[in-house]
Structure formats: structure tokens, C-alpha cells
Design a protein around this nucleic acid. Structure first.
Lengths: 366, 366
DNA sequence: CAATGCAATGTAATGGATTACATGAAATCG
DNA sequence: CGATTTCATGTAATCCATTACATTGCATTG
């Protein structure tokens, strides 16, 4: 009964059947789409198994049958129902990449790396923007528990809880999580930040301010440590008044500089935990009549696309963004193929890119 | 039990637990996760129907039963299999937003609008980056045919082919497509571009160059038309040598200026079809010793986040990005709820935002 | 008190594809 | 030539949740 009903609604071979207005079967001979293996099987006069096989593993079906089925499938525009397929096979070939903020250009290139590797291995990538909200992260993570996706690459320092047995199909990129069970890829933030500050030191700077990122993020802690160690190496006494914190936004960079200036701090260089804060810093400096780099040198971190186009262009630490993405996806695929592979923490290196926002320190400003 | 497990996995509080190695069923008494309604039903001593009802429509289950089932579900960490559910109900509450390029900050805000409305209506949004590739667009669109997503918001000027009957569950945002069956939301590009050029005219500019976007995109054609019409209004004869084309990238903006300058064209203002090309243009101008806005005024289009932070900050046309997203998602939801709603082309207005990159024309440079 | 209605729950069909197992025909072997 | 593989295909079980329809028990009503 309800079968018949459904078929007529969906397959609707019949005459007018007149769902909507006219549209008689004459002037709209538009073949109704066939939707199920069953129907394809009936039309091709083979069994559903053969249809399925012709589509999934063509080599085990005889040449003639295969061609015939493909012809029918094509002619009728049949697309297998992925839900049914995935339900049965328990895999989706879909992975979700969680990023805190699509507006942050840093992630774009990472995503591209992820997608390259994913496509090579027959996976599709869907992006979920979390806005660093635990709830949103969790919502996307639940897609894995609910079997709508095979795995997750998360770019925050948290690992969402996924109620499944065994290894979580999660890889962490750009950030890192302490959990030794979770594979991560990230750069050596201590070394990179150190290199940035070392460079400022070689330019003669000694009063080097620092704008940290959120301390909840381990990589920010590392960058700060890199800064500290570099000062130690240079035998520059740490001046905690020169270290401020921001939230990675352009505005935070501006505010940090406003704060330092209003406190009357003197510094000839600023190292920022990311490029956007560096952009904000540059802007605040110049709106206070301080020239970059003549009066104050500025160094960022990430090397986002716009870093090249600020004026002056930004000296920064270039993260291997594409490699981070590729590596993360590679590890996730390994993990999906074999839940036994041991988790790894993979550390890439990041290099200093010298551009126009840094210059040797000059005697004294003012 | 499993809670404890999870905590130990995530927070990694516990002792060794020794993840690998042994793992005999004795020292790993880890309760296997329950995965199906059936199991939950058995444990709760009710039928599968009751479990399903308790989860889907709690109000039709008696208070006591409901609480009991919820308790069991929670205790065992059961997540219903979304594939099975979606297969049965034939809806996923998932929509895919296709964007040409995540690196383009213009889309970020649009996405946010989409997500706001989506969440209000219980939909999740997944993003697909297409890199303007037809193949990629098609791949994501196939998810709808394969029933993995309910609908699509596309931000390009193409509508992917989806082999289904009736109305395509597709809405077009930011761009627009000719197909009258597809709803679109976009701004009045002719008027907006006109306003930008009108403004330059009121500043005294008469030699106004134009950097167009790809002509395959209808909105770019419109922006160009807006430019033309504004010149007509101002009785400025069109000088086709001043109109160039770019591909929306920063580099394209640079190249366009290089080209104009190398041709010896003289102009005191440039209107660019998007902000990134405007950023490139500013950079190329200043690297040729031309000051913005003293020598040349620059106007962009979009008002991306960085437009405020260039130096000088960029005068541009602010698209109502959030509204574009919200409206698109609203229309898509309407369409999903009722395939009969007539398609609409919704046109929003975009306003000029005057910042530092424009100034009155001065006598003559050099 | 029988009749009727309603609330709560159970049974089983259903969605669409995959695939283990079964079958039949053709090919290979001793 | 009968026995054994091999190949191609078919039949039916399976994945897991939803829900139409059936059933049961109890309250309401005339």
C-alpha cells in the first residue's frame, strides 16, 4: 500500500498522475529519474547484486553485462543512495576539518594541503567552522559518532569527545594536544619564535615587546617561551612589562600597542604571535606617529597571504601551511586504514621571512 | 564507566592504563559501547519503537519510561546512527555551502550569516571549497543527489547539475545565475559600482581607470556596466584603454596597474572590482612612487576585513555580507520545506564606505 | 456496566545498497 | 567422460533507525 504510494510519488511512471498542474506526460516526456538499484536491476533485467557489482567492482562482472548496466545507469541518471551504501559499509569516505575561523587566512592554505591528499585517496573534505566554540566542535565531532564522517582533523588544541570504542579517528593540526593518543602535526614554535627574536637581536634591538596569543593554546605558550629563551641567549633581562596578550585579532594587536604606549614603555621592536596582530600593531604604531621599521620593527608569525602586501610588508615566520595540511591528512588516512598505527607527534620547521617591517635599531627615537 | 574511560582518554588523568600492549579482557574491562537502538531497548527493557520515540518525540512517551531510557542512553553513551535515520527519513538536515575560495575573506562573513540562520532552524552547514572548478562543484553537488545533504548554497555563477526530479534544492548567493528557477541573493552591482564612480567624480576625477573581474561572472559585468553608466552620467567619454581585467587576486591588481603605467596611461583614480585587486593596485602604485590618495585615488569592492587595515585604509563598497548569507539560507530553508515556493531573485543594496584611499583630485601630478 | 476513546507501548515493514552464500553453466583436469 | 574449479549471476540477509499499524489497559461516558 504505502509502497505503491511512494513509488507513484517518487518514480511516478504513470500517466498524468498530475502532481501539480497540467504537465501531461506528452509535452513533458522527461523521463522520471530512477532512484534505486532495484529499479535499475529491473530495467537492465539483471539482479540488484549485479547492478551493485557493476558499479562497485566492475572487473568481476562480465564485459557485456557491465556495459549494458552502465548504459542504463547513465541513461536514467541514477545516483546510488550514499546513505544506504554508507550504512551498509560503515564508511563514508568523508572527513571533516574543523577550523576555528574561516576568516583567518592562515588556515586556507592548510586546508588546501588537506584536500590535496584527501582527493588522492578518494576522500572528500568538508569544513566546519567552530568559532572556537566547544559546542560547535562537539556538534561536528558527533558526526563521526553518528557515522556521517570517518574522521576529523581539528585545528584547535582540544580534542572533542567522540563516544566510540578504541582509537579516536582524530588528527590534530597546527595546534597540538597533550593527549599522547592523538597524532598531531605542528611546527616547532619555540624554535621559530626564538629565530624571530634572535633576528631582532642581531639587528641591535634590545627592548623587544611581545604580543602573545591566548594562553589556553599550547602553541602560544611555546612562542612565548621561544621569545623568553632568545632573550636569555642574548643576555637581555626579561621585562615582563613588555609582554602583552591578545586574541589573534587585528584589533588585539592595536590594543596591545595602545597599552604599551600608554604605559610609556619604550621598545624598538615588537614580536607578535601571529600576523593579524602584527598588522594591528603596525597600524597602531603608525597612527601614533611611529614609523615601521624606522622607529619600531615588527615581526609576525604565520606568513598569511596578506603579510606580503602590508606596507611595509611584514617580516614573519612562515609556517609550512601546505605541508601541515598534507601531513595531517596523511596521518588521518593511515589511522583510518589501520587503527593500530601508533600515534605520532610530527614537528615541522618554520622559517623566518625577512621583509620590510624590520630594520636595524637606530640610536634612539625622539 | 565509559565516562571514566573517555575522561582518561581525553584528559589523560589516569595512571598508565597502558593503551597498547596487553589489553586482555581482564585488565581492560572497558564496557563496549552500545551502538544500536536494539541494544538500548534490550537494556532498558522496552521496545525499539519506544526508545526511538523517547529520543525523537519525548512528549509521546510516558514520563517514567522517558526518563529511564534517557538515563540508559546517557549511561551507555549511545549516539543514534545518523545514516540509518537519514536513510529512513530521507532528510539529513545538512546543507553544503560551496565557496570558490576559502582564502577570500569576503566569504567568511557570508558563511557566518548562513550558519546563523541554519542553526536557528536546526541545520548544520558544511563548507566545500571548489576553487572555481566545475568538477569540484559537481562532486559536492552529487552529495545532494546521493542524499547526503539536503541542499546547496552556491556562491558561484554556475548551478551544478543534480539529477533529481523537480526543483533543485539550490540557492545562489553573492553571484547570480540566469536560470529563473534558481533563487539568488546578491547586491545591485550596477548601482553600487555606479555609486563608487559617482563619488570619484564628485572628487573631481575624470580619468578613472577600472579593473574588472573575470567576465565569466555576471556580477563583474554588472560592475563594469555601473562604471560605464556613471561615466556617461558625468559626461565623461569612455576611454577603453583605462579598463583592464583581473582575476580578483592581489597580484592581478598589481599587474593591471603595471600595465596601465607601462602604457603611459594617465589617470587620477582607479575603481577595482574587488578589494584584493585594490590592495594590489595600491601596492603597485606606491612601488612606482605614486602616492595613494594624493596622486591616485583607489576604490575597492566588497569591504573585506583587511580593507580597514591597509594603509591608507581602503575606500570601498560594503556588501551586506551577513545579510547575503542569512537571506540565502532563509530562502533555501523555505525551498526545502516547500518545493513549490516560487523562486526569487533578491537584490540587496551595497553602500560606499569612504576611507583613506580616496581624495579630491589635485591639479596635475608631476 | 457495556461501549468508546485515549494513552502507552509493541511488532514488523520499511528505506536502499552491499555482500555472504547459493546456484548454474562453462572450463579444466585426471 | 565424470569430477572439480572457476566464473557470472541470483537470492536473501544485513546495516540501523523510524513509524504505520496493532494491541493492551485504563479512564470516561451514557
Amino acid at each position: 500500500m504505502w509502497e505503491a504510494k511512494l513509488v507513484s510519488a517518487v518514480g511516478s511512471k504513470g500517466k498524468g498522475q498530475g502532481a501539480k498542474g497540467k504537465r501531461s506526460s506528452k509535452d513533458a516526456p522527461q523521463q522520471n529519474r530512477v532512484r534505486t538499484v532495484k529499479e535499475i536491476a529491473a530495467i537492465a533485467k539483471v539482479s540488484v547484486a549485479t547492478v551493485s557489482r557493476a558499479l562497485q567492482r566492475p572487473e568481476i562482472v562480465s564485459e557485456a553485462t557491465r556495459q549494458h548496466i552502465h548504459e542504463v545507469v547513465k541513461r536514467l541518471g541514477y545516483t546510488p543512495n550514499a546513505l544506504a551504501r554508507n550504512l551498509r559499509t560503515a564508511r563514508t569516505r568523508l572527513i571533516v576539518a574543523l577550523l576555528p575561523d574561516i576568516a583567518n587566512p592562515f588556515f586556507s592554505e592548510v586546508i588546501r594541503g588537506i584536500e590535496q591528499v584527501a582527493h588522492e585517496s578518494g576522500y572528500s573534505v568538508l569544513l566546519g567552522e567552530t568559532q572556537s566554540s566547544l559546542v560547535r566542535e562537539q556538534a561536528y565531532a558527533d558526526m563521526v559518532a553518528a557515522r556521517q564522517a570517518d574522521g576529523i582533523i581539528t585545528m584547535s588544541h582540544r580534542v572533542p569527545a567522540i563516544p566510540i570504542n578504541g582509537r579516536l579517528p582524530v588528527v590534530n593540526a597546527c595546534e597540538y594536544v597533550k593527549d599522547p593518543q592523538i597524532s598531531s602535526v605542528y611546527v616547532d614554535n619555540v624554535a621559530a619564535a626564538g629565530a624571530a627574536v634572535d633576528y631582532l637581536v642581531t639587528l641591535g634591538h634590545r627592548d623587544i615587546a611581545f604580543i602573545a596569543g591566548p594562553s589556553s593554546s599550547p602553541i602560544c605558550v611555546d612562542r612565548e617561551q621561544g621569545y623568553r629563551l632568545a632573550l636569555q641567549r642574548a643576555k637581555i633581562p626579561a621585562n615582563s612589562a613588555l609582554a602583552t596578550v591578545g586574541d589573534f585579532s587585528i584589533e588585539a594587536g592595536e590594543r596591545a600597542i595602545e597599552l604599551l604606549l600608554s604605559q610609556g614603555q619604550s621598545f624598538s621592536a615588537v614580536f607578535c604571535s601571529n600576523d593579524e596582530m602584527a598588522i594591528g600593531a603596525m597600524r597602531a604604531l603608525s597612527s601614533h606617529g611611529l614609523r615601521v621599521p624606522e622607529d619600531v620593527s615588527v615581526v609576525g608569525f604565520d606568513d598569511i597571504r596578506f603579510a606580503r602586501y602590508t606596507s611595509p610588508s611584514l617580516t614573519t615566520i612562515a609556517q609550512p601551511k601546505n605541508a601541515l595540511g598534507r601531513e595531517a591528512m596523511t596521518m588521518l588516512i593511515e589511522l583510518l586504514n589501520d587503527p593500530e598505527v601508533p600515534p605520532r607527534k610530527r614537528v615541522l620547521s618554520a622559517d623566518l621571512v625577512v621583509r620590510g617591517s624590520t630594520a636595524p635599531r637606530v640610536s634612539r627615537r625622539g
